[in-house]
Every structure is written in C-alpha cells, then in structure tokens.
Design a protein around this nucleic acid. Structure first.
Lengths: 141, 141
DNA sequence: GCAGATTGCTTGCATTTAGCAAGTAATACG
DNA sequence: CGTATTACTTGCTAAATGCAAGCAATCTGC
C-alpha cells in the first residue's frame, strides 16, 4: 500500500534524495531493527530501547513502505499482526548502517560490542555478505 | 564555541547516537558541501540548490560545531565572514556519505554523474583516500 | 458465545521544530 | 559617510513530534 505521492524533490543530489527518504531520527532505527535485531512487528519495534511513540512509528512504517524500503504482510497465524521485511532496496542500506556504526564506535562513546565492531572493521565485506544472506533466508508466508 | 550540552541519549546504540547528531534532513548536506563542493562559508551553504532557511542553517552549523564535526574560523581578510572546515571526526563521515550516494544512485533517479558513481563503485578506497587528501590540503589561516 | 486481552493503530491536544520574511549588528568599500 | 555585505536573529505561522487515551478488529480461554 502506498502513501501519498512525495512532493517535488529539493534537488537531484543523491545525498539530498536519501535524506528526504530517511533523514530523520527514527526511520533508520526501524531498518536497524529489521536488519540486525530480528524485530519484525509493530510491538517489537516499540520494544526497542529508544521508546518511539506509536503515532511516529506508524507514520515511519508507512513512509518506508511507500518508499519500497520495507514490505508489510499480514501474519497468517494472527490477522491482527503484520510482519515487516526489508526489500532488496532496504537491505541495500546495510553498507550505510555499517559505516554509521563504525563512525560512531570510533568517535562517540557507544554500547557497541567491541568484538563486533572489530569484526566489522576488519572484515566488512564478509559481515555485509552475512547480513544479506540472513535477510535472504527469511521466508514470508 | 559550544552550544548547550545535549540531553541524555535515548540509547547507546551507535546508529541511534549517530542519528541524534545528524539524523535530520539538513546536517549531512552541510557536511557534503564541505567535503565535495568546496563550499566553506554561510553564504556558500545558502547557495546550494536545496534552499535551506537561514535560521535552520545557523542552527545546524552550531550543532555540527558543538558535536566537533566542523570547526569555525573568522576570515582574516574579512572579519564579517567565517570559514568552516571539517574536523577529523567530520571527514571520517566520508564513507557514510559515499555509501548513501551509491545507494541513491542505484535505487533512485538522481542527478549524480554516472562516471563519478562508476568510479566510486569500482574504486571506493581510492576515492575515499583522495577525499581525505584534499581535506588535508586545506589550510586555515 | 462472550468477556477480557491484544494488536495496531487513530485522535486530540500541547509542545517543539521548521521555515518565511523582515530586521539587525558588525564590517567593508568607494 | 552612505551603501552594501555577512551572518545571523526575530516574530510569526505552519508542520511535525509526542503524550495519553481511546478504538476496531481479532484472539483466547472458559
């Protein structure tokens, strides 16, 4: 399901376009949870430490779906629940998130596990391959 | 000069921390202009195609300086003007921006030059090294 | 079959942020 | 010294954020 058509872009710059899609403080956290945290439902996203508001989460999910970064499927076992999954376009954000993790781990005080950061740094390509493989293993009903 | 101390972080996650610093739709455009566009002053940032408002630009420059991503120096030739420069922490954002460019170039319609994108894709390490070398060549008075 | 619980929101409201247009202090220039 | 420039600030409005409460659809256990 699509949201309303986005307004005219402010420029053709790839960075500006990317920021118009996910340049806010919550969207990439949803992508993070799908990519790294095995969270796939509305309530699982709500349970993250950052405490997003329900109206904000709902709005961000709609926009990410509208931008084809995630897809939404009804849970066959419970019609109330929806299961989200990253699309190809969404999993392609992995290198962006990995570089953000590496930048923060080096320049800020974070809670990132040092061994994970060390592996990301030393074997970035392998780490990214594994992330994509795990994404590909997820089957939807 | 520092702004006020940032409030308590919403989590220790490196992605969340990064988004608290630059997870809005303008901050990384300032970093882009310093990194790739040889823009260094308030008016040069204003001249970018995206048409940022002056109060927003002022606020973002203050926050980026407060977060030690950019540094601000008075122009010795004109005391009204300030020259901005990326810090070490700021130039370290280059891999993040490059991955955003590559992601957008592949998944959105952008105005990015295909030859530049091709070179970034094929020789990412070399491209990043050159970006850092050009940053290192910038001298401040 | 129904009461209570769950899921995924929506709603109303207060607060904060974004952004427009105008204005200002400090500085430069001819 | 008058005019222009630079980097903002200000007042205001519109939009976004986020809280707390509420709701429709669905599920579960008795």
């Amino acid at each position: 399901m699509r949201g309303k058509a986005p307004p005219k872009q402010r420029s053709g710059c790839p960075i500006s376009i990317a920021l118009e899609i996910f340049g806010d403080s919550w969207s990439l956290l949803v992508v993070r949870d799908l990519m790294f945290k095995q969270r796939r439902t509305f309530n699982e996203f709500l349970s993250a430490e950052e405490n997003i508001a329900t109206n904000i989460l709902s709005e961000r999910l709609a926009r990410l779906e509208s931008n084809e970064i995630i897809e939404k499927h009804q849970d066959p076992n419970d019609a109330r629940r929806y299961i989200y999954r990253l699309t190809e376009k969404g999993i392609a954000l992995a290198p962006v998130l990995v570089e953000m993790i590496l930048w923060s781990a080096q320049h800020e005080t974070t809670a990132a596990a040092p061994d994970v950061v060390a592996e990301m740094t030393a074997h970035k390509g392998r780490f990214l391959l594994r992330v994509r493989q795990e994404w590909a293993r997820i089957k939807l009903p």
